[in-house]
Amino acid sequence: MSREEIFERITRIFREEFDDESLVIVDETNAGDIEDWDSLAHVELVLSMEKEFGLKFNIKEVGELANVGEMADLIMRKLA
């Protein structure tokens, strides 16, 4: 799966989670940029990604993520 394709799917998950079809996600987007991105939303995002890409994250991986770009990189690594 290409990084673009992964990013596209991530964007879809974010738009669904925050119920905002115009939401634009870039590599640098982090929890500070989206008002409703609290710890509950975070749990839901991680669950949705795991389901979307059919994988499981471990605590180290999730703990190290600083923004959406790193999330996309992580997914790419895990799918490789």
Binding site: S39, H42, V43, K56, F57, N58, I59, V62, G63
Partner: peptide
């Protein structure tokens, strides 16, 4: 699920 326990 230890991951879910430690993380959240």
């Amino acid at each position: 699920d230890y991951t879910a326990y430690y993380l959240t």
